[in-house]
Simulated scan of single mutants.
Amino acid sequence: MCAMAVVVALAATACGGGGGTGTDAVAAGRGAAGFPVKVADCQGAETTFTSAPRKIVTSNGSALEMLLRLGVGDRVIGTGFPPGKGTLTGKLDAAAQKVPVLGKSVIAKEKLLGSGADLYIDTFSSMRNMGAAGSGPTEEEFKAAGIKHVPLASTACASMAKKPQTDLSGVEGDITRLGAVTGTPGRAREIVAGMRAKVAAVHRAVGKVPEGKKPRYFLFDFDAGTKQPMAVCGKQVANAVITQAGARNIFAGCDGDFRPVSWEDVVAKDPEWIQLGVRNRGDAAATEKAYDQAEAFLKSFPATKGLRAVRDGKFLRIGSQRTTIAGVGNADAVEQIARTIHPAAFKAGR
């Protein structure tokens, strides 16, 4: 047992726009075995791990993917919001499809508490648009069931952040914390380094684009419904993805993470690019059909068919999970968005 506990504080690292990722804090206290590890929740309450958990349940596919990339997928005994087939690539997808599904959406409280897990990784605790997520177990119920409860700070704590997310430090901090908790800090550092390298390459290409030249960008969450659009605000991780890609989120100024807005609000901001945010359907053809439906709606709906992006056909087909939920895919989304909206910057190897 190391003499000093690793303290991984969410408040200092989770949702800031330009601070550190928490990596340094983890490294500073690590002993030979890496334990004990203390992790703070969104309110600052600490949970101590004296050893790595052996039976983990994840609230959704993004948390599951993090564990698979950390090499501890064999410890995952169940998940909610399972990733659709083909959402992940290669061996990751095959491994994800083998994980028992405890809930096609939010895991029922009774099933979660009776799962036998010793750790629950929670992506949704403060995400108001997840509906049933707010009826999950209390901290007392988690404790009584012997389950330690760890949130992904960049999403679960986002609405409580003091400032917007404008970089991926919150996501990197989540990966670093999970690496510390699962006893895989070295692998976590490798994953974070890979994300940083990808984003750095984007910065080299588009970093000198003046703020006024960055296109206005709207993430249209088609699956949230078409009657009233759901905006991703400044504290949502999607704002960081959009910002890092060299675009301007048209709803960056609204407080919080998500907020229902009106189509009049969208029209007033007249986006130059629109991302068709569609969740993976588990079938390539079905997912593509959903993208087609989202595009067709914008082209036919009276309020949106005159938007600049719609008139010019400037749509991006990027899954909403890779943009609005924390994960390694956030860095991939940064690159894909940047290459689409700034093609000239990437020509000739730039």
Rank of each mutant, 00 (worst) to 15 (best):
V99A: 05
V99W: 02
P100W: 15
P100M: 14
P100T: 15
P100I: 15
V101E: 12
L102Y: 09
L102I: 00
G103I: 03
K104Q: 07
K104M: 05
K104R: 13
K104Y: 02
V106G: 11
V106E: 13
V106A: 11
I107W: 05
I107C: 12
A108W: 02
A108V: 06
K109P: 06
E110Y: 04
L112G: 00
L112T: 13
L113D: 14
L113H: 08
L113T: 02
G114Q: 07
S115H: 04
S115W: 08
S115G: 01
S115E: 10
G116W: 00
G116Y: 09
A117G: 04
A117I: 00
D118A: 08
D118Q: 14
L119S: 04
L119K: 00
L119H: 09
L119F: 10
Y120E: 08
Y120K: 02
I121K: 07
I121N: 01
I121C: 04
D122Q: 08
D122Y: 05
F124M: 01
F124K: 00
S125T: 12
S125A: 12
M127T: 14
M130G: 05
G131F: 11
G131N: 01
G134S: 14
G134N: 15
S135G: 14
G136P: 08
G136V: 04
G136S: 10
P137D: 09
P137W: 14
P137V: 01
T138P: 01
T138G: 09
T138R: 04
E139F: 07
E139Q: 15
E139K: 15
E139N: 12
E140H: 04
E141L: 03
F142Q: 08
F142P: 00
K143W: 03
A144W: 02
A145V: 05
A145K: 03
A145G: 00
G146F: 03
I147E: 04
I147F: 08
I147M: 08
K148F: 14
K148L: 13
K148N: 09
K148C: 02
P151L: 02
